[in-house]
Amino acid sequence: MVKRKSKSEFINWFGPLLDALRELGFSGKPKEVSDKIAENLNLKEEFLDQTLKSGTNKFHNQVAWARQYLTWEGLLDSSVRGTWKLTEKGKNTYLNDEQSREIFLKWVAINQKARINKSKSEVIEEQEENDPDSVEIKAENSLLEILQSLSPSGFENVCKELLREHDFENVEVVGRSHDGGIDGYGVLEVNPFVSFKVIFQCKRYKCSVSRSQVGDFRNAMIGRAEKGIILTTGTFTREAEKEASRDGAPQIELVDGQKLVKMFEKVQLGVKERKVFDVDMAYFQKFKD
């Protein structure tokens, strides 16, 4: 983890995020948008691979907060889940540094008033260390923290159950032999006529999985299965992502910590669903003027 140099770095991505969405046709998936910003600004790999204390990718988290502020400002549509979409106002808005900072200060003040026991600096620090969806209601022990606290064999076995819940069959953990980095295998039936043997590797990390680790896993997979999956509670470096999808080589599916949590939530494995309502501050703000 790299120590942050200054606070509120996510302000830097307000304008570039709007620009990226315009290039993507006014909407895009979160990862697409982050990658487009990184491409447009020619950001260095070492910066893009930085993580927070939680193991979350720092850059993607900052872009998610930039999106949250722009949503509050009415520049992005908050109703489209899983997709970031510009509003008509957002399509025609171009932000410089000063304008971005004005939006930031406006909504920090509003957030501070809504959270009586939080100072302005505490609100900012909370945002820098957590993703937007977790700030309002944050469990004392998050799912990722619990998964990271398991024993190596415990994490492998909970991943086995997770894959079973996601329609894999004959899922088994190899055990302590760790045959060439392979932790387990299973079968995924696409339809009654087509099925794939899949091997998987479990990495109970807070850091990032490297390119070489993906390459080593692929070497162990060749000749034994049609597909490979690496599941981690951490993240993957950009070079690891490129290696996983390299042309001419068997493709490796990568499941990072954030995707892993969503997989647990989708099948409600080890988690209980509860319905909560958050106040839409942007909606009520217009009635104060």
Rank of each mutant, 00 (worst) to 15 (best):
G25D: 07
K7Q: 10
K113L: 14
K262H: 12
D280G: 08
K106H: 14
L144Y: 02
K242W: 04
K286F: 07
K266V: 09
L75I: 00
M263L: 15
W65G: 04
R164A: 10
C202L: 07
V173W: 03
K44A: 15
E189H: 10
L18K: 09
V80K: 00
T51M: 03
P30W: 05
L163S: 06
L254D: 11
A225H: 05
G74A: 01
D19V: 09
L95T: 07
G248S: 03
V63Q: 05
F196M: 05
M281H: 09
R4P: 15
S195M: 01
G234Q: 01
E45K: 10
E169D: 12
G175N: 06
N157H: 12
Q50E: 15
F10S: 04
I103Y: 03
Y283P: 00
L76I: 00
K227P: 05
K286A: 10
N61F: 02
G15M: 05
L24R: 12
N111D: 13
W107L: 02
T232H: 04
E169F: 06
G55K: 04
D247N: 13
R67T: 11
L70N: 00
F10V: 07
E102K: 11
E140T: 13
W65I: 01
G15I: 03
S121H: 09
A249R: 11
Q50G: 12
F217Y: 07
E169W: 02
A225F: 01
N117P: 00
D19Q: 14
D216Y: 04
P250Y: 10
R204P: 01
T87G: 00
G55C: 06
I182H: 06
E140L: 04
D216C: 00
V123A: 10
S121K: 10
Q201F: 03
E136T: 12
S142I: 04
E32R: 08
G181I: 04
Q62G: 08
E122M: 09
G15H: 05
P192G: 00
E253N: 14
D133G: 07
V173G: 05
K36W: 01
F284D: 11
E161V: 01
M281T: 09
E165W: 02
I182Y: 04
E273W: 02
E129F: 06
L24C: 11
F14N: 03
V2D: 12
F236R: 02
N170E: 10
F14E: 01
V194W: 04
N157E: 15
P16K: 07
I103N: 12
D97R: 07
P152R: 07
A225Q: 02
S177I: 07
K7Y: 13
L147M: 05
A64L: 11
L95W: 02
L24D: 12
E136H: 13
R176G: 15
E169P: 01
V194S: 07
E172P: 03
L254N: 14
N111L: 13
I146Y: 14
K36R: 15
S78P: 15
E88K: 00
N42A: 13
L269P: 12
T87N: 01
L24Y: 08
Q213V: 01
L144T: 10
K89L: 13
I230Q: 04
Q62D: 15
V271I: 04
R101S: 15
L95S: 10
E129Y: 02
V209A: 09
K266M: 03
L41Y: 11
K259T: 14
A64E: 09
K3Q: 11
A240I: 02
E88P: 00
H60W: 06
I124F: 08
F10L: 05
A64G: 08
